[in-house]
Write a protein that binds this DNA or RNA. Structure first.
Lengths: 240, 240
DNA sequence: TATTTACTCCCCAGAAATAGCGAGGGCGAA
DNA sequence: TTCGCCCTCGCTATTTCTGGGGAGTAAATA
């Protein structure tokens, strides 16, 4: 596809073929060699705290991070969560005492002083980070990130794709499809209309509307309207 | 196609510099010329249906699409909403009558029969599509998408970045974060509990629970509980 | 043709949610 | 220390939703 063998392309191709966790780890190590940086980490951030990832961080640091629930105070996670574009760690908010302590401690564990993290988002609010980490001065790091930003974004995308493949419970179970009217009803309810408003908007009686809501609720296996709307959104059958 | 003066790189660079809507439109037109396809469209899918985008679709089709609220039934939107990786239109679910009618009508308006759409997600549940559209046979289209997939993913990313820059008000970063109790309450409501069950689960009185729900509703700008839960889910504040 | 599916309409009674007031203690940041 | 936010609990009245029935038309499917 591309002229001479670009090592990043090669890693991406290998990653696409990977069907084991080892394959992912191999890809990360290969990338680290290619970019010649201290660490590369893919980190799935689950709001429940059940995070996991692959990468080259020292194991004891990863354990400590999870044990201390640093997720909650890590400016990298917080900052990436509210951004779309990759971000240099220097540009994050390290003003809080806890953040600076975290940073100091991470260096003790062998984490580089420079970092560049890419936020990635999937369906159902899935969120992950792809981070490149190194020890060098600011100028050198800026050159590195400027040069490799686009490739890193792509790499992050492919890592997340693999992670989603390996996480079957994250794929929404598809139930009976909703009828157009049912979809309309749930969608309007989801944007805050009450029954009277929805019925008026759809030009049907409130009684009819109720039938739709109930059948939608039944199809979605929901206990009430709120539940039905919640399920419809997280299964992606309506877009709000 | 991939040498030093890569036209896609040039377009991306121009896009990064763009500070007007015209710049974005120019970038889209340039990309269409480069890829030699019928249409390229960036489409921000917004909650209240106040969608917008840039692209080369005929204006009358865009108007009709919005007027008819085709967003609700478009398999491209629904399909991308449940996926992470780009998707060929052929692989979507066109089984519903409304979907097939939409497809037939779009062709009348000059939309190509082949399409490839990339879902993009930003902070606060922001969601957009980047679509390439053409008229050709399946083999040719498959070759095209296989060849350009990675570049298209990157392009989609940069378009979304620009869109986010231009629409700071669309990403409600002044939306107050929910307190832990508020999150708990909404989460339990989203999985189908009623107020009594939620109150019991959280070991608080139903009156207290009500305060949480109301304050969460206020913070999320929601009209009722269902709306609040819907917003919380689509903004990624809670995960169900 | 027969059957299923979607869409539309109706009644009633009980359960649940909402709107509007109120109060006090705790904890962390400015 | 004050200010703001979070957590907790209380009352009353009104509106809205839910659950249990039944029934007819049109269109697609088998």
């Amino acid at each position: 596809m591309k002229d001479n063998l670009n090592p990043v392309e090669a890693v991406l191709a290998a990653l696409e073929q990977a069907d084991t966790l080892e394959g992912i780890q191999d890809a990360i190590v290969a990338l680290r060699s290619h970019f010649q940086v201290d660490n590369i980490v893919y980190h799935w951030v689950d709001s429940a705290g059940a995070q996991y990832g692959y990468g080259t961080y020292p194991l004891d640091w990863a354990e400590r991070y999870q044990q201390q629930n640093y997720l909650r105070i890590d400016p990298v996670v917080i900052g990436c969560y509210q951004r779309f574009h990759p971000v240099d760690w220097k540009k994050l908010d390290w003003s809080s005492k806890a953040a600076r302590a975290l940073q100091a401690e991470s260096v003790e564990y062998g984490i580089g002083n420079q970092g560049y993290s890419i936020p990635i988002r999937g369906p159902n609010g899935q969120f992950a980070l792809f981070t490149v980490n190194h020890t060098c001065d600011d100028d050198e790091w800026e050159t590195f990130t400027e040069t490799n930003r686009r490739e890193l974004i792509l790499i992050a995308h492919y890592f997340n794709q693999k992670a989603l493949e390996f996480e079957p419970n994250k794929t929404p179970e598809h139930s009976q499809p909703l009828s157009p009217r049912e979809t309309d009803a749930l969608t309007l309810l989801a944007i805050g209309y009450n029954r009277a408003q929805v019925a008026e908007t759809l030009s049907i009686s409130e009684h009819t509307l109720r039938v739709y809501i109930e059948s939608a609720r039944f199809k979605l296996g929901a206990a009430n309207t709120t539940h039905a709307v919640a399920r419809a959104i997280s299964r992606g059958v309506i877009v709000v």
